[in-house]
Design a protein around this nucleic acid. Structure first.
Length: 497
DNA sequence: AACCATTACAACCGCCTTTCG
DNA sequence: TCGAAAGGCGGTTGTAATGGT
């Protein structure tokens, strides 16, 4: 908050006494007429008075002139912020109402961290307020391992995307037209990201149960997905705002419901959930069911990150900036041969989102060669076909010796679908960048663990048939393909039928 | 009562975009 | 057209207040 140069001053000037500063002191405290250093730290009531007076006279804007005209030793930015966040007469004070909280949650599900836009939807509230509220809430939810979004918000969002192909909430409020308008199929990736951040995937215990359509709607390609699933990559600056094209596939509402059925067992933010009449049993689940059918430990990163701490639950909102493993154009056909020594799943992001330019070494069309839209559509068709003619084999470990080694349980020699527009790649992530050393989970188990196949079938997943289903799933997923995660879901979907 | 953890809030920083001369 | 200034935004940090042990 305070600049380091003013820390001591700020400490001295506690909330209790800083209001005692007179206007003269406020003006003289820093500099008059912009000579000395600008003051930082908490604003005094005198400074506030000066600023209010100034705005009354001159109106908003031209904030840098405040210092000149009023003698206030604050920079223009600081003045603007102070005015916008505290002095504006139309500001609402006090805690957020349940309605506002609800609105924030929905807006965040739609917009992501677009605090200013969210603030525009909430009259009298500032972006800073909303941001603080959200961050606090996220921390709370992270600790409790609860979903970030209430189920009904996700449901609305997905339902909305169904309706308008935009992945937006059909909330009925008319002020979201900016998101609703347009005739493209573009879905702001933030919406997808945030659905994924919802925590329905964050622990992934029910990952396999998520219908593919739901999964797709939730944005499988989003970076946040991988934040959730692969939370321990070294941080780099995330792309500031990735607007990703992602098609909406058909997917019935009913197919999405089971997800919520599962997760209604988990709780949401206790406070918000209570205010919004959400069920709240997740805490209990946390205490009693610390082992999950997915093979991971609840509250553990063991899911795919055995070498990460298990002290913190994976939470959808976990803010992890992943390294941008930019797929090297100089390495054609190197799906699965990633250049970076430690790429993240952002790389998968990149791969999936990248425009098609080349074919993979296996001859399969990669997303690069045919585009994500085509890929998705293709896979959609494949899925439909598969329902009619269940595939015999899908796991192609032949092209991924590493995976081959790591999947000794694979009962099927499989061939990837050479016609799939989605080529190989995900295997690299699974094989290369899953836990390596010092892990609590044997790296060889990483994939199995993720699939919940060989890990702890007796703990939660008591149903042997369920276990077998997962076995089948694991054997049919081609981790050499970037859409392996899609497969995960799709198999999950298939197994619902 | 002391200590610690958490929460809520305020403010700054850096980057990006827009505006203007 | 270009560069500087201003404005806007999101991320981060620091601190007081509060609650629990």
């Amino acid at each position: 908050m305070m600049g380091t140069a003013n820390k001591s001053e700020s400490k001295k000037m506690s909330k209790g006494n800083r209001d005692l500063v007179s206007v003269e002191e406020a003006k003289a405290g820093g500099n008059v007429e912009g000579g000395g250093p600008l003051k930082k730290g908490p604003w005094t009531s005198a400074e506030d008075a000066i600023l209010v007076e100034y705005v009354k006279k001159h109106g908003e804007g031209n904030w840098n002139a405040v210092q000149k005209h009023s003698g206030l030793s604050r920079c223009g930015k600081s003045c603007r912020l102070r005015w916008a966040n505290h002095l504006r007469p139309d500001l609402k004070k006090g805690a957020f109402t349940p309605e506002e909280e609800r609105c924030i949650i929905e807006l965040h599900a739609k917009m992501g961290n677009k605090w200013a836009r969210m603030a525009a939807e909430l009259p009298g509230r500032t972006d800073n307020e909303i941001k603080n509220y959200w961050n606090t809430r996220i921390k709370r939810l992270q600790r409790s391992g609860s979903p970030i979004y209430p189920p009904d918000v996700c449901f609305q969002l997905m339902n909305g995307s169904e309706d308008n192909h935009m992945g937006t909430l059909p909330t009925g409020d008319t002020h979201h037209h900016d998101l609703l308008q347009g005739d493209s199929i573009e879905i702001p990736v933030v919406e997808l990201n945030n659905l994924l951040n919802s925590g329905y995937l964050s622990y992934s215990p029910k990952f396999l149960d998520i219908p593919p359509s739901s999964m797709l709607k939730q944005g499988v390609s989003s970076s946040h997905t991988y934040d959730i699933l692969f939370p321990t990559m070294h941080p780099l600056k995330r792309l500031r705002e990735s607007e990703t094209l992602f098609p909406c596939l058909d997917g019935s509402v009913s197919s999405a419901l089971p997800v919520f059925n599962h997760y209604m067992d988990y709780t949401c933010d206790m406070k918000a959930a209570e205010s919004l009449n959400f069920s709240s049993s997740f805490d209990q689940d946390l205490n009693t069911n610390d082992q999950l059918p997915f093979g991971g430990l609840l509250g553990s990163h063991a899911l795919l990150n055995g070498n990460s701490s298990s002290s913190e639950p994976i939470s959808g909102a976990m803010k992890l900036e992943l390294p941008s493993l930019q797929y090297s154009e100089t390495q054609p056909g190197s799906w699965g041969k990633l250049a970076s020594p430690l790429p993240s799943l952002e790389s998968v992001d990149t791969l999936i989102q990248s425009p098609p330019t080349e074919q993979t070494h296996s001859g399969c069309l990669s997303p690069r060669s045919s585009g994500l839209l085509e890929a998705i559509l293709y896979e959609s068709r494949t899925l439909k076909d598969s329902r009619k003619n269940p595939p015999q084999e899908t796991l192609d470990i032949s092209v991924m010796p590493d995976v081959k080694k790591r999947l000794p349980m694979n009962p099927c020699g499989t061939d990837g679908d050479p016609n799939s527009p989605l080529g190989h790649s995900a295997a690299s992530v699974f094989s290369e960048y899953t836990p390596v050393s010092g892990s609590s989970i044997d790296e060889h188990q990483s994939v199995e663990t993720m699939l919940g196949c060989d890990a702890m079938p007796e703990t939660v997943d008591q149903d042997p048939s369920h276990y077998l289903v997962k076995k089948e799933i694991s054997s049919q997923i081609d981790f050499t393909r970037p859409d392996a995660l899609l497969d995960l879901c799709w198999f999950g979907h298939r197994n619902e039928h």
